[in-house]
Nucleic acid binder design. Structure first.
Lengths: 99, 99
DNA sequence: TTTATACATACATATATTTGAATATACTAT
DNA sequence: ATAGTATATTCAAATATATGTATGTATAAA
C-alpha cells in the first residue's frame, strides 16, 4: 500500500490543497465551519473582521481546491466543509503544532 | 475538546507548517523519507533532479517548521522526519486528493 | 596545511499570493 | 423598473516564496 513512485500530478494536487489550507484566515474559516457547519459570507467576514472581498477570495480558494462547497440560499451563499477528512487534518496539525 | 476561540498564534503555526509541506518538492522529500527514513542532502537532490542549493533551501524550510530533523554524520547531514503524524497527514491528503 | 567533498548561505530575479478599493453581478422586495 | 442587500470580480500595490549562480563553511583524507 506504499507508492514510492513520485507522481508529479498527485504531488501538485496534494501541495495545492495543503497550501489552500495553509493560511491563517482560511484555517480560521474552516474552524468556524467546524463549529457551525453552514455559514454565509457576511457572517464569515464579519466574524473574522476582514474585508468582504478578502473573505470572498479565501472562500473561493477553498472552494476551488475542493475544501469547501457552496450553495445559494436566496441572496446568500452558504459555505460548508466538503468532507470531514479535512477536520481530521486540522486536528492532526493542531496536535503536531505543539513542538 | 473543541476550541472555538481563534488563537492567532496557533493559526499561524498550523498554517506555517501546512505551507511548509505544501510544495511538490517538499512533499517529494517527505515521500522519499517515508521509504528511507534517513537520507543525506546529496542523495535527496540527485534523487529529485534539482539543484543542491534548492534542496538545501527546501530542507531548511522543513527543518525550521519542525517537519524534519537533521544530524551530522561525518561530512554528511542526515535528514529524517520528525514525527510520524506527518506521514499520517500525507496519507490523509493522498486519500482526500481524489475528489 | 592543502585538497576534495558535503552542505549552507547570500543575493538577484522571477513568480505567486495577499490585500484593499472599486466595480460588477445576482437576487429580493417594493 | 428601482433600490437595497449579498457576493464575486478586477485591478494595483505590497509582500512572500522559489530558483539559480556564486560563494562560504565544515569535515575528512592525504
Amino acid at each position: 500500500m506504499k507508492k514510492s513512485v513520485l507522481d508529479v500530478a498527485k504531488l501538485e494536487a496534494a501541495a495545492s490543497k495543503l497550501r489552500a489550507i495553509g493560511h491563517p484566515m482560511r484555517i480560521a474559516i474552516i474552524d468556524m465551519l467546524n463549529d457551525e457547519p453552514q455559514m454565509n459570507v457576511t457572517r464569515i467576514y464579519k466574524g473574522l473582521g476582514i474585508e468582504q472581498a478578502s473573505a470572498s477570495h479565501h472562500l473561493n480558494i477553498l472552494k476551488t481546491k475542493g475544501v469547501l462547497v457552496s450553495k445559494r440560499d436566496g441572496k446568500k451563499i452558504l459555505y460548508s466543509i466538503k468532507n470531514t477528512a479535512l477536520s481530521e487534518i486540522i486536528d492532526c496539525i493542531n496536535r503536531c503544532s505543539d513542538y
